[in-house]
Design a protein around this nucleic acid. Structure first.
Lengths: 348, 348
DNA sequence: CTGAAAGCGCTTACAG
DNA sequence: CTGAAAGCGCTTACAG
């Protein structure tokens, strides 16, 4: 055993040590540290001094075992279909950042874990008392997803999910108003004088977020007597490669289009590459609008117009809602309004 | 109290419940779950069945309180000087991903927390038994950093740091061989016929990673009778904005250059924007090489040549080294060899 | 191979 | 305002 480790183990300070040094009982030490008002100010001072002098920290396990609260939330990040380190969707990494910060603000720790949406989730953080509740993050086939959400509800697990908000869903969801976001994109493309808008992304009910974006854009176009055409829709999951391929496929169809609304920024960036490769100019020949508001949208060439999801508010809302749930307070699903950030990729 | 929650609380299954159902003692249940060989196979079967039937999970706090092991590691991610959600360096997010995966492989949970390098770190995860050790991630002024590392060492905290590996450093470090990476960049630019290489990034000892990259590139150039010139070096922290501004500043100096070696991909992407803005072509007029091997390098226009750090191996090594440290096994600092990924930004 | 018992370090009714 | 005592749910010497 190293010297440092021996020191650490031997020196392990407990609340009893603090009690002795401050001349009070263990119970009083606990009260001071819990911020109880039932403590004489002078007593509190002495205890706090002893805590400082001995660098005492409450043992989390002892505390949690007694109170049956972990003071910790767990974030499950689903990463189908790209289990490659470098390919995690930057939007979700941004969400991870804001969730981490929100947890810290609320005085909770955050356990982070990556899961395959298609596999069995290791959602037993609450059963083993490691976390008071779960935050579920990541899109994927909703057919798979929904069944697992129902299992969680049946087990009485506390969880909040990021995703499309729809009536009758199991559990509580926080999500972007994707329909409104699609509408913003459609209206903007109309204002740019575009008439034939292509959509890149799976628009079926298996991907409710993408579907709502599709429908929102479609609705905006319909109000102008237009609409999205199935002939100008191509599936793509949220990667640059998929956006690249889908755009090539679209071009191969020969059906003319003057704008692309991509279901995510990554898809949009892939689309821009494919358009350039085909000798088309962005935005002169084709306007491109993405979705998410990731940092890379600004770095794209040309800079990408994108529907921005408010990740800061999203993280805060996910955490605060989950904590309310844990405390048995009433909660509700919330849709956050997106905004449009207009850049050169769409404006002629 | 909601129905689900009442059920959850009331149903809380303990090892004693399993013991009763399997007709054994609590001690035997514990042995089975710990995989002890001192258990009759038939007894083991009965216990495992009861565990399955009651969906029993060991209470982490009770277990950790008894064993004095948390089964958890904590990741501290420093984010000076950009505490904005969207601006976390994508390289560190990629590292976060690989560390998360490595933790899971090693059967440990991971607590994630963002910290300001300049503030007091909340490095008390080990004091409160929340984690068995720390992984430190993020660059920053090493003057600040080093003092805090020494404090951690003095406290006997178990930690591993990601960063430049140098003799005499406090604690254990895992890092990229930045000097070798700089050398790769320099040799490649020479092979591209470049003679006047500019460097973007702080090359002082306060940023040892950047400094080593500078020196490695300089060494390669010197072998060809050239070298990096201080007149062609401009400070930049690892953001696109900083790279953009540094390049503008460089251009304003009027000193000619035909290549830029940027200390990070973000800086390089900012540089490309500034070069284009100035009417210069990449790579025809100026070759650009970045560092990190982030996903956005591939998406840049033109695609960015970059020195790739192996984040997968890095994450695995950080976690396995930390676990060895926690187990009092001998460990050592390691430098990982980088590779060069050549793309269009450097090749005429 | 198995069980009875102690104890990890807290918090919280309870009593004063 | 304070203290003595119990107990959260495990694991592990110890004894057999």
């Amino acid at each position: 055993m190293t010297e440092a480790r021996r020191r650490r183990k031997k020196n392990r300070v407990t609340s009893l040590d603090i009690a002795h040094r401050a001349g009070v009982s263990q119970a009083t030490v606990s009260r001071v540290l819990a911020g109880s008002p039932l403590v004489n100010p002078e007593t509190r001072r002495r205890v706090e001094q002893a805590v400082r002098e001995l660098n005492y920290k409450v043992d989390r396990h002892a505390s949690s075992l007694r109170t049956q609260r972990a003071g910790t939330l767990a974030l499950l990040l689903f990463e189908d279909p790209t289990p490659d380190d470098s390919h995690i969707n930057p939007f979700f990494l941004s969400m991870l950042g804001s969730i981490t910060r929100a947890c810290a603000r609320h005085g909770h720790d955050l356990l982070v874990s990556f899961q395959q949406l298609s596999d069995d989730w290791h959602a037993d953080y609450e059963d083993s008392m490691k976390a008071d509740g779960l935050i579920l993050l990541g899109y994927g086939d909703y057919l798979t997803y929904r069944a697992k959400l129902e299992t969680l509800v049946a087990q009485g697990t506390h969880f909040v999910r990021w995703g499309q908000v729809e009536p009758g869903q199991p559990g509580v969801s926080i999500g972007c108003d994707n329909h409104a976001g699609g509408r913003l994109a459609g209206q903007h493309l109309l204002a740019c004088g575009r008439r034939q808008v292509a959509f890149l992304g799976d628009a079926s009910s298996r991907f409710p977020e993408f579907q709502a974006r599709y429908q929102g854009c479609d609705a905006a176009l319909r109000e102008a007597g237009l609409g999205l055409s199935p002939a100008l829709q191509a599936d793509a999951d949220s990667t640059e490669e998929a956006g690249f391929k889908a755009t090539r496929e679209l071009l191969a169809r020969g059906q003319p289009f003057d704008a692309i609304f991509a279901a995510s920024d990554l898809i949009a960036i892939g689309a821009i590459h494919a358009l350039k490769e085909a000798g088309l100019r962005v935005p002169d020949d084709v306007s491109v609008v993405g979705f998410d508001g990731t940092a890379m949208a600004r770095l794209a060439d040309p800079p990408l117009t994108t529907v921005v999801q408010d990740t800061s508010r999203a993280g805060e809302l996910l955490v605060s809602t989950l904590l309310q749930l844990v405390r048995d307070q009433p909660v509700q699903s919330v849709m956050l309004p997106p905004t449009l950030e207009i850049r050169a990729s769409s404006m002629r």
